[in-house]
């Protein structure tokens, strides 16, 4: 097996997969070499079957900070100790568990935002996202998992990034566009929903609501 490889994930961006024979210096020089390629992309590192040392993670994070054009979004790993280390360093990290059908891995990040997102603000989460406020026009929300908004959605919500199933719920919905698991729904102006729920299941986007206005 190669030491590491790059692959594009369908939505998140570019993923670097490193395996058992992880070598920090090689990863660094590899990334330096590919910096141009990675420019502007969102980037995650997937560490498989290898436990990271604390000083390795520290050095890697320091190095990633120095790559200005790259948006580093966090780690993915199948080793529990790595996730614990990441939490210590306050870096997002998804733990991949054995393939469990349906439901999400319980170890995924759940982020709670206790404010209204105003125009120009953006919140992301590798897992689920709960917003205790509104998502105003011009604000953006991106989550690897589901998005729950305890308020009105008038901005752009992207949920279930890189997943097959996901849902978005909102008390009130009046946004021009919505994306779940790569599937997009567009809405007419003034089209609005109360008790809105949109979900993707078996590749189809379905919308439920209590009341619809136009």
């Amino acid at each position: 097996m190669e030491e590491f490889k790059l692959r594009g994930t369908n939505v998140i961006g570019i993923e670097l997969i490193v395996g058992e024979n992880f070598n920090l210096q090689k990863v660094k020089s590899f990334l330096k070499e590919k910096e141009q390629l990675l420019k502007g992309a969102r980037f995650i590192i997937s560490v498989e079957n290898r436990e990271l040392k604390e000083e390795e993670l520290e050095e890697l994070l320091e190095f990633l900070k120095g790559l200005s054009g790259i948006t580093f979004c966090g780690f993915k790993t199948n080793v529990k100790a790595n996730r614990e280390l990441c939490i210590k360093f306050n870096v997002p990290c998804d733990l991949l568990t054995e393939k469990s059908e349906g439901g999400r891995a319980s170890t995924e990040e759940v982020k709670i935002v206790r404010k209204t997102l105003r125009s120009g603000e953006k919140v992301t989460s590798t897992g689920d996202l709960i917003i205790m406020g509104d998502v105003n026009p011009g604000a953006e929300v991106e989550a690897g998992g589901n998005v729950y908004v305890m308020g009105s959605v008038r901005g752009f919500v992207r949920a279930g990034i890189g997943k097959r199933e996901g849902e978005v719920r909102a008390v009130y919905f009046e946004a021009p566009r919505l994306e779940i698991c790569g599937k997009t729904a567009e809405f007419e102006r003034k089209e609005h929903y109360i008790n809105f729920r949109a979900k993707v299941k078996e590749g189809k986007l379905k919308i439920d609501h209590l009341k619809r206005g136009a």
Binding site: R118, S119, G120, E121, N136, P137, G138, A139
Partner: peptide, 16 residues
């Protein structure tokens, strides 16, 4: 009007 509201919202966020 929407353009003005969105800009006002942005300004509010920056002030915050």
């Amino acid at each position: 009007e929407m353009a003005s509201i969105r800009d006002a919202d942005r300004v509010t966020g920056i002030c915050e």
